[in-house]
Design a protein around this nucleic acid. Structure first.
Length: 557
RNA sequence: GAUCCCGUAGCUCAGCGGUAGAGCAUCUGACUUUUAAUCAGAGGGUCGAUGGUUCGAGCCCAUCCGGGAUCACCA
């Protein structure tokens, strides 16, 4: 972790850097200009609703908040903490589609998530299960965070003082909330959602009476009986917007970002936090992610992309870059954005490494008088996305024999040779850069694996194999027959391919080679065929030809 | 209706005050016993419109036009 505490120059650069995490961090600097936080640290919070598995938006929020935190650490010596707060006391509203034992879960609708049995049978509850999933994947990315469970917070009594404040300011809060609700909801609305002692469900019922001194409310339970219950100790959950405000106040949250869809909620919760006598946290609204058709992605719809899907085709850093870039812009989050994200990540790594080197093309920034002056290397590093993605310490760029590697190039290579595994890619790579292997370049090896996976799932299905003409068929038969007796040498194989093409009545030799690609690889262009056969294997190539002649490739496409 | 985002090269987008950029696509050349890959190079944009601020504006402000999303039930 880089720290600017002992580097005044770095700090001054951080204070003027323009990348959005710095803009955000400056809000916090401003917040504590007059006095440091009484609790002794700056608290950033991210929220998570564990009614389903963590999704890519959750990742984005933690990633982005972490970037703000890190930026802030360059500007200030104040300690920071990041809470990942799980709203796991929320009542289960509907049964998710993507879980087993739905009938069992259905019986527990309305109960706090931490009271619904785990349909996967592994954890204490469904809420605990989803919390564990969240922590797993946050850990996988190496985020620094502290997990907080709403259930535990409520039960521990740590929220009690603020809950009582909510009760004391009941009328003022209702006055804020009611105008935002429909007529129907106005009649039943209550900031307090008592947990029924009879059924265990979180109830959305009106408050009939309240006793501020005793700290209790009276409501009608599901069995029709009037019940008086304390608002403290986890007996009552708060309705969402009030809950959020209460949490801000009780924990003294200083920063929390949220999606654009929550703007009205942020406004309301901020008003309520003020009613409770606190200063609402600094905030930031990021745009939503869209699926391939431009629709908002959501857990329930299952559109867009999951974290797992992204990570099947690209390294985590590329996803972090995607989250870093343009947070205020609605972006499509679909498979087709992955290759570009990877290549941009790689090129930012290159640029980061080149900063300050004499050979690098001089980066420059404008002077007020119109001239240009070379930008400060420290500033350039802070503005580079790689700095934010890697917590200030990006790794060395990926290169092969001195030239930068791109994912696009690997993808082309995979497509050109119809790669079935990354070993084939390595055949070409090692020939290009002798001595370079998966062992010497593990990062490149990973990338090759991603490229093959992406090619296999997205590029290959789009290929169209055609059947050979009669002339092509005869030539291909010749080639298949000749292959087993040839040496394993690209040049010799190429000679034979060429000779066979000449032997058969092709109008132009180009037609012969094109036929090879179209019939065998499902594309109009490809690698030099001798090289391909040598790498793919002579026997395998012969088998491929036989499959094509039998019509198996054309029908499969 | 309220709020927000977007409108820059054929396509996807970067650029957020200082003589218009990238990738892909297109074209040319080099290298290849065909191609592709790779490398080198080229063409291509009155930066949605109109006003304003400025010595200077895709970049800031205002208005308008066009596209999209979110919230108006729940979280």
């Amino acid at each position: 972790m880089t720290n600017a505490a002992r580097d005044p120059h770095l700090r001054s650069m951080a204070l003027q850097a323009k990348a959005w995490p710095f803009e955000e961090a400056r809000k916090l600097v401003e917040r504590f200009k007059a006095a440091p936080p009484a609790k002794g640290y700056v608290l950033l919070e991210t929220g998570y609703g564990p009614s389903g598995l963590p999704h890519i938006g959750t990742f984005g929020e933690v990633a982005r908040t972490s970037m703000v935190r890190h930026a802030f650490e360059q500007m200030s010596d104040l300690p920071t903490r990041l809470f990942a707060f799980s709203d796991d006391m929320d009542g289960l509203r509907k049964v998710p589609d993507n879980i087993p034992n739905k009938e069992m879960v259905t019986k527990h609708l309305g109960k706090p998530l931490t009271q619904v049995p785990d349909p996967f049978g592994k954890f204490e509850s469904f809420g605990h299960h989803n919390n564990a999933m969240l922590r797993d994947f946050l850990d996988r990315f190496g985020f620094r965070y502290e997990f907080k469970s709403a259930t535990e917070e409520y039960r521990s009594g740590r929220l009690d003082a603020t809950l009582l404040k909510v009760l004391a300011h009941y009328d003022a809060i209702m006055e804020v909330m009611l105008p935002t609700l429909g007529e129907e909801r106005q009649r039943t609305y209550s900031p307090f959602l008592p947990v029924s002692a009879a059924t265990g469900r979180v109830l959305q019922v009106p408050v009939i009476e309240r006793d501020v001194k005793a700290g209790t409310i009276v409501f009608e339970d599901e069995d029709g009986k009037k019940v008086e219950t304390p608002v403290t100790g986890g007996r009552c959950k708060l309705q969402w917007k009030v809950d959020w405000a209460m949490r801000w106040v009780a924990l003294d949250v200083d920063y929390e970002m949220a999606g654009k869809d929550l703007i009205p909620s942020v406004e309301l919760s901020s008003k309520i936090a003020k009613i409770l006598g606190a200063r609402p946290p600094e905030g930031f609204n990021y745009e939503l992610f869209l699926d391939e058709k431009g629709q908002k992605i959501s857990k329930s719809k299952g559109n867009g992309l999951t974290i797992e899907e992204w990570l099947r085709y690209a390294p985590p850093e590329s996803l972090a870059l995607y989250m870093f870039q343009q947070p205020k812009r609605a972006k499509r989050l679909y498979f087709d954005v992955i290759p570009r994200a990877v290549d941009e990540y790689l090129s930012f790594l290159d640029r980061f490494a080149a900063i300050g080197k004499p050979s690098a093309k001089a980066d420059a920034e404008a002077k007020p008088d119109g001239g240009k002056v070379p930008a400060d290397p420290a500033l350039l590093r802070l503005e580079n996305p790689a700095w934010h993605i890697h917590g200030g310490a990006p790794p060395a760029p990926l290169e092969l024999a001195g030239t930068p590697i791109s994912f696009g190039m690997l993808l082309n290579l995979a497509s050109a040779c119809n790669a079935g595994d990354k070993g084939m890619l390595w055949g070409f790579l090692s020939r290009y850069a002798p001595g370079v292997t998966a062992a010497t370049h593990p990062k490149l090896d990973e990338l090759a694996g991603y490229a093959v996976a992406y090619f296999h799932d997205f590029v290959k299905p789009a290929k169209t194999f055609r059947a050979p003409t009669d002339v092509e068929r005869k030539a291909l038969e010749d080639l298949a027959a000749a292959l087993p007796d040839l040496p394993d040498e690209a040049g010799k194989i190429q000679d034979e391919v060429y000779a066979i093409g000449k032997r058969h009545p092709f109008a132009d030799l180009k037609d012969w080679f094109r036929a090879l690609y179209e019939v065998l690889l499902g594309q109009s262009q490809g690698p030099r065929f001798g090289s391909f056969a040598a790498l793919y294997g002579r026997a395998e190539t012969a088998a491929l030809i036989k499959k094509a002649l039998a019509g198996e490739l054309a029908s499969a496409a």
